[in-house]
Design a protein around this nucleic acid. Structure first.
Lengths: 198, 198, 198, 198
DNA sequence: AATGAATGAGAATTCATTCAT
DNA sequence: TATGAATGAATTCTCATTCAT
């Protein structure tokens, strides 16, 4: 489930180097030569494992989206949790996913648009599956009378995604400056209860 | 409040062309020659008004942030509105700001990170002022017992910003596909009441 | 004989500005806009008086070469001086010419090659007349048995020119650092007597 | 002592191409693409060996100045020669250095000022060492009563340098038009004896 | 004559990608 | 597989010069 940074595979090695370099410089300023250097291979070797620079980014995103989709997919199918509990767990698992992967989080939030431009088709496929799960979570809550039935799925979906992305963005920018534990609790409360006192 | 796209000023003309081209291609794929063509001036003329490509983006962001800061700044100072009313109005005014400026919205959400990399100092100055106002809005609500006092300003700030940014991002990507009126209502409800029924 | 820096003529004004700017930045880094600024006219106005940037340099060189040729021409024709006295006077008058015109001296020594490239024909015309006078001075001395008859004119000509140019180059680079009076005396001695004691 | 133009090293190949192109067009009109073409490599390859156009010129000058300094440095230290003999040898060796390197000579004399502007620090270091040696040569002759003690080092230094530079300049401009052997003899005589007969 | 905004040709440089070894 | 030297396309920015006013 988690990327094995100590893997012996060259492909893995290179991908991890790409994550580190993209995180530090951003995709457009990142140089293939620097990625090769960090990975400890030659520049030419990258192309034995990845088609080009863009495909490095694609792999990073797809790998991560698979993990994120796995989380939401498992969650929404569970029968032992109420929708609010599922919501809480989803948020927690997302934060856990990136907790030790600051660099990955940085690439994910900063290069989201770059990725969209690269690979619109695949990008849509990932997001659709992801959002379908969130929608079903919301729908379940609305059908059972726990969630506000007036809130459109499209809104909920993007506020959840956008809020979480922003929190990760800020945290990943300076991981030690933010109380990540506190923030995720607040986020869960906000999502469920809003800012108004009842 | 709205940029005058028919302005006689060359600088305005060029900036609007830059917005259009950045919106269509993204900053990195946008060519100065294309911006010049859209603006109806020669490539060299751009440099009479803007130092370089980066400064075009900076101007776009600073112009827009000034407008956004003006909104929040005015709002938070008003004495005729309760904090929840201020929150609603703020969201509405932000959506209004971009309602007819799809391209500007696209640049703003898609190139946020590009801008951060360009001009970290100015970027921080804008965001700090903006977030300070949001914090004061939250603080006012918490002091008067209307808002949940347990929610940290940092969380609220970024969920509000991140949620609104994501909604704008999706809407600006295909403006006709989304019921923008519905979405903003839902967003206001979510922020205030959360997804749970009381 | 000497450039009138307080002249009312725009052409003069512009040429003096060009001298100052070429002296400071060198011909290739000098900008027409800067010359216009220093001259207190608009960039476009320069072109009312001079065909282009190159012609500014040409005018500077030709003006100066006329003065230098006037010196040598007058000198060599004089019947009241012996050849060694003429030589001394020529050196003195050249130094006098540039004594108060550091900037002109700088342009002359630094942009010599630039000028050659621009205007080979005119360049040759100037130098030929100049060198012809020096040759005649040498020839007169050699015929009258005062100067060493074994020294070829071509050598003498260029050593005189090259030595004087180098001294001016160093002096014009930092006018206060060099004892210009001492240097010109030494130069005259070297030319006439050489470095060896008799 | 002589640059090996048939060297296998790409760096050497490129530098020689740069010398040829700088000699033909002058530094400012020389195009990197032309240098690449002459060297038989691609334009991008130049940048594998040299940081930029300016560094090509710097390398040329520093390489040559090292050779010139080597000549003077060795000479001045020799105990088997009198000062006048050293002077003669120095002139001869300088002429020998450039005898088969017309293009190098052209670059050296024509782009001297360009180089000064590029790299003032290194430029000074080279010239200082060079002039120090010439000064010591003069000083030795003056102390031993062979050379005229009234001639300042600064004058001698620059007349020697300036005279030789000018002779090279003229010769390198049209190598076949000048009797280089005759010229160097005359120059040595002029330096030592002057133009006057004793 | 004077202006100075506008032009646009021109060139250095970068860097992802290839391919001979 | 692995290398890394070589490639060359691609693009920003500069600045001398022009010309409508």
């Amino acid at each position: 489930m988690k990327r094995d940074r100590a893997s012996d595979g060259k492909a893995e090695l290179i991908l991890n180097a790409a994550i580190a370099v993209f995180a530090e410089y951003g995709y457009h300023k990142a140089k293939m030569a620097k990625i090769a250097e960090v990975a400890g291979v030659s520049a030419g070797s990258i192309y034995l494992y990845y088609k080009n620079k863009a495909s490095l980014l694609s792999h990073i995103f797809e790998m991560t989206w698979e993990m994120m989709i796995a989380i939401t997919s498992d969650l929404t199918r569970r029968r032992d949790l109420t929708p609010p509990e599922k919501l809480d767990l989803m948020v927690d698992q997302h934060f856990d996913l990136f907790h030790l992967e600051t660099e990955l989080a940085r690439v994910l939030v900063n290069e989201h648009y770059t990725w969209c431009q690269l690979a619109e088709a695949r990008f849509n496929a990932c997001l659709e599956r992801y959002f379908a799960d969130i929608d079903s979570l919301l729908g379940e809550g609305q059908r059972t009378g726990i969630f506000n039935p007036h809130i459109a799925a499209v809104t909920f979906r993007h506020v959840l995604f956008g809020g979480m992305r922003r929190l990760l963005e800020v945290w990943a920018g300076s991981p030690d400056a933010l109380p990540i534990g506190r923030i995720r609790q607040d986020f869960k409360v906000l999502l469920k209860r809003g800012v108004l006192l009842p």
